[in-house]
Deep mutational scan, measured.
Amino acid sequence: PVYLSVKADNSMFIGNDPVTDETMITALNALTEGKKDTTIFFRADKTVDYETLMKVMDTLHQAGYLKIGLVG
């Protein structure tokens, strides 16, 4: 499974590897070998604001990742 996490300080990680807004999709493409039907499990600290969550989800959708599971 692929886990994308947003921490309380808005830092992002794919698994244990830090990513930025600019590198997130490139890292996901490498990890999933470009398979856009891969489910991305998205988790965020409860203090992360809604705007940040939606920005990340919008970026995922624009890149073609449509299977996003929200996890606690």
Score class of each variant (00 low, 15 high):
residue 60 L to C: 01
residue 32 T to G: 02
residue 20 T to Q: 04
residue 29 N to I: 10
residue 59 T to I: 15
residue 71 V to M: 10
residue 41 F to G: 02
residue 1 P to F: 13
residue 57 M to E: 02
residue 38 T to Q: 08
residue 70 L to Y: 11
residue 3 Y to G: 02
residue 14 I to P: 00
residue 22 E to Y: 08
residue 35 K to E: 06
residue 63 A to R: 02
residue 50 Y to T: 10
residue 34 G to V: 03
residue 63 A to M: 03
residue 42 F to C: 07
residue 44 A to R: 04
residue 56 V to C: 04
residue 36 K to Y: 08
residue 35 K to G: 04
residue 12 M to T: 03
residue 23 T to N: 12
residue 40 I to S: 00
residue 9 D to S: 07
residue 48 V to E: 02
residue 7 K to F: 14
residue 52 T to M: 11
residue 45 D to L: 03
residue 16 N to K: 10
residue 28 L to M: 05
residue 6 V to W: 07
residue 48 V to L: 09
residue 44 A to C: 12
residue 21 D to G: 12
residue 72 G to M: 12
residue 42 F to V: 15
residue 1 P to K: 10
residue 54 M to Q: 13
residue 26 T to Q: 13
residue 18 P to K: 11
residue 56 V to Q: 02
residue 23 T to F: 05
residue 60 L to G: 00
residue 63 A to C: 03
residue 45 D to A: 10
residue 4 L to H: 01
residue 14 I to R: 01
residue 61 H to G: 06
residue 17 D to R: 12
residue 8 A to P: 06
residue 47 T to G: 15
residue 63 A to Y: 07
residue 62 Q to A: 14
residue 58 D to L: 13
residue 2 V to N: 01
residue 32 T to A: 03
residue 49 D to R: 13
residue 26 T to V: 12
residue 67 K to S: 11
residue 3 Y to I: 13
residue 71 V to F: 08
residue 45 D to W: 06
residue 61 H to C: 09
residue 57 M to I: 14
residue 2 V to K: 02
residue 43 R to F: 14
residue 24 M to H: 01
residue 20 T to R: 04
residue 59 T to H: 09
residue 48 V to W: 03
residue 42 F to K: 00
residue 54 M to D: 05
residue 10 N to V: 03
residue 15 G to E: 06
residue 54 M to E: 07
residue 8 A to M: 07
residue 19 V to M: 03
residue 67 K to P: 04
residue 69 G to P: 04
residue 56 V to L: 14
residue 21 D to E: 15
residue 8 A to H: 09
residue 6 V to G: 01
residue 16 N to F: 09
residue 70 L to F: 14
residue 2 V to M: 05
residue 1 P to I: 11
residue 50 Y to W: 13
residue 33 E to T: 08
residue 15 G to V: 03
residue 67 K to Q: 10
residue 6 V to K: 02
residue 10 N to E: 06
residue 67 K to A: 08
residue 6 V to E: 00
residue 30 A to K: 13
residue 61 H to E: 07
residue 19 V to N: 01
residue 24 M to Q: 01
residue 61 H to Y: 13
residue 14 I to T: 01
residue 67 K to M: 11
residue 43 R to Q: 13
residue 47 T to M: 12
residue 44 A to W: 15
residue 7 K to E: 09
residue 33 E to M: 14
residue 29 N to C: 05
residue 47 T to S: 14
residue 19 V to K: 01
residue 20 T to H: 04
residue 6 V to C: 03
residue 53 L to D: 00
residue 21 D to T: 15
residue 67 K to V: 12
residue 13 F to E: 04
residue 8 A to Q: 07
residue 62 Q to Y: 07
residue 69 G to H: 15
residue 41 F to H: 09
residue 42 F to S: 00
residue 53 L to Y: 08
residue 49 D to M: 10
residue 2 V to L: 09
residue 17 D to P: 01
residue 22 E to T: 10
residue 35 K to M: 07
residue 45 D to E: 10
residue 51 E to F: 11
residue 46 K to M: 10
residue 56 V to S: 02
residue 15 G to T: 02
residue 32 T to E: 01
residue 6 V to Q: 02
residue 63 A to Q: 04
residue 24 M to C: 03
residue 65 Y to T: 01
residue 57 M to L: 13
residue 48 V to N: 03
residue 34 G to K: 04
residue 24 M to L: 15
residue 24 M to T: 01
residue 57 M to G: 02
residue 61 H to F: 12
residue 25 I to L: 10
residue 68 I to M: 04
residue 66 L to Y: 15
residue 70 L to G: 07
residue 56 V to I: 15
residue 55 K to Y: 07
residue 27 A to G: 03
residue 41 F to Y: 13
residue 69 G to D: 15
residue 72 G to S: 12
residue 54 M to W: 10
residue 62 Q to E: 11
residue 19 V to S: 02
residue 58 D to Q: 13
residue 5 S to W: 15
residue 37 D to I: 03
residue 54 M to G: 05
residue 49 D to W: 05
residue 26 T to K: 11
residue 37 D to M: 07
residue 42 F to G: 00
residue 68 I to Q: 02
residue 53 L to K: 06
residue 58 D to M: 13
residue 58 D to W: 12
residue 67 K to G: 04
residue 65 Y to L: 01
residue 6 V to I: 15
residue 62 Q to P: 00
residue 8 A to V: 06
residue 14 I to Q: 01
residue 27 A to K: 14
residue 27 A to E: 07
residue 29 N to Y: 08
residue 72 G to R: 10
residue 43 R to V: 15
residue 37 D to E: 09
residue 20 T to V: 03
residue 46 K to C: 13
residue 68 I to S: 03
residue 42 F to W: 02
residue 38 T to R: 08
residue 25 I to T: 04
residue 51 E to C: 14
residue 72 G to I: 14
residue 4 L to T: 01
residue 50 Y to H: 12
residue 59 T to D: 06
residue 72 G to E: 13
residue 59 T to C: 08
residue 70 L to K: 04
residue 31 L to F: 08
residue 57 M to F: 12
residue 26 T to Y: 10
residue 44 A to E: 02
residue 4 L to Q: 01
residue 23 T to C: 07
residue 31 L to A: 12
residue 58 D to T: 13
residue 22 E to Q: 11
residue 53 L to N: 02
residue 14 I to G: 01
residue 35 K to N: 14
residue 31 L to S: 05
residue 28 L to H: 00
residue 26 T to H: 13
residue 18 P to W: 06
residue 34 G to Y: 06
residue 9 D to I: 04
residue 32 T to Q: 02
residue 23 T to R: 04
residue 37 D to N: 11
residue 10 N to T: 07
residue 29 N to M: 08
residue 9 D to N: 09
residue 54 M to T: 10
residue 8 A to G: 11
residue 8 A to W: 11
residue 37 D to C: 08
residue 40 I to G: 01
